[in-house]
Computed example of a mutant assay.
Amino acid sequence: MLAMGAVFRSLRTRNYRIWAAGALVSNIGTWMQRAAQDWLVLTQLTEQNAAAVGMVMALQFGPQLLLLPWTGLVADRLPLRKVLLWTQTISGLLALGLGILTLGGWVQLWQVYLFAALLGCSAAFDAPARQIFVAELVSEAELPNAVSLNATSFNLARLVGPAVAGLVIATLGTGWAFVVNGLSFVAVLAALLCLRTADLHLQPRAGRRPGALLEGLRLVWQRPDLRAMAIMLFLLGTFGLNFPIFISTMAVQAFHADAKGYGLLSSIMAVGTVSGALLAAGRQ
């Protein structure tokens, strides 16, 4: 059995504890939006068109690849806390905007495409900054545990968020799931503002020089461990992360489920990942 003190040891650090609480609330809202967005496209804006759901996914996650040279540059050069304040604010406003359109009955498919692309651009700058920012919240000795707890938080939100989204959609309507997500960003913004900047473990920043991106790609390819990890992530991202399409279409077409059933089906996916992240957090 894992000792709870070892699994959650990073939470003893005040800055990380505040960040983790705010991030968990925001992550739950994010997973609510993803579930509600797919449900909106599949059941309200199209006649169960899985290709439209796939297009939304492509527009939301494509920018993370297309903007790679610039997102890494921003994370390397600019203060990470300020970057996160901007990206989280933009993402929250976009979620509220989509919620207002949906509640007002004005939402159209092209608008969902547009909001998905804009959210994808914001997330593209947010993701590297958020991952590196963890290193500024804890000491080097606690960093592996903090990274694992970050993964636990993300997947715990993935366990809770879709189920809550299903209940919200069934009782209040799809638009309210987007509004709740928009409001959830207040938690992470408050957490960022409450951090003690004097306690941050600031990391050395990358120097400005030409060819840095190509140099980084060469480094990854020359190291067998990094190369294997990159190939594995490419294969998983390409063939494994399209589960929202299968889950949403199976829920509607195969199981004839309502929004609550769809949300529960989406949440069950996270049980294994939460368990794995907790096991990783307990390792030294």
Rank of each mutant, 00 (worst) to 15 (best):
A163V: 14
G166I: 12
S148V: 08
R158L: 11
L156E: 12
L143V: 05
E142H: 04
A177N: 04
A157R: 07
N155T: 13
N150W: 02
G161K: 09
I169W: 00
A141G: 07
N145L: 08
W176V: 02
G173Q: 03
F154A: 04
L156I: 14
E142A: 15
L172R: 00
F154G: 04
P162H: 13
L159I: 13
G161W: 05
V168N: 00
L172W: 09
S148Q: 02
A151F: 08
V164D: 05
P162E: 11
L172F: 04
P144A: 11
R158G: 09
V168Q: 03
V147Y: 02
A177K: 00
E142D: 15
L149Y: 03
G161A: 08
F154M: 13
A157K: 10
T174D: 05
G173H: 05
S148F: 04
E142G: 03
A151P: 02
G161S: 11
V147Q: 04
W176H: 03
A146F: 01
A170F: 04
A146L: 02
G161V: 09
L159W: 13
A151C: 06
A163R: 08
P144Y: 07
L156F: 15
N155Y: 11
A151R: 03
G161D: 06
S153I: 15
N145C: 05
G175L: 12
L149E: 08
A141C: 01
T152M: 13
L149P: 03
S153L: 14
T171I: 02
R158K: 15
G161F: 09
V164Y: 07
A177Q: 06
A177M: 05
S153A: 15
T152Q: 10
A146E: 03
V164H: 07
T152I: 04
I169V: 15
A177P: 03
T171D: 11
T174Y: 01
L149H: 05
N155S: 09
P162C: 12
N155E: 09
A157V: 08
P144Q: 09
N150Q: 08
L149A: 07
S148A: 15
G166T: 12
S153N: 06
N145W: 04
A141M: 03
S153F: 11
L156K: 11
A151M: 09
E142K: 10
V168S: 01
P162I: 15
L156T: 14
F154V: 11
G173Y: 00
P162W: 10
P162F: 08
G166N: 12
T174E: 11
G175A: 12
A163Q: 13
L167R: 01
N145H: 07
A151Y: 05
G161M: 09
N145P: 05
L143G: 06
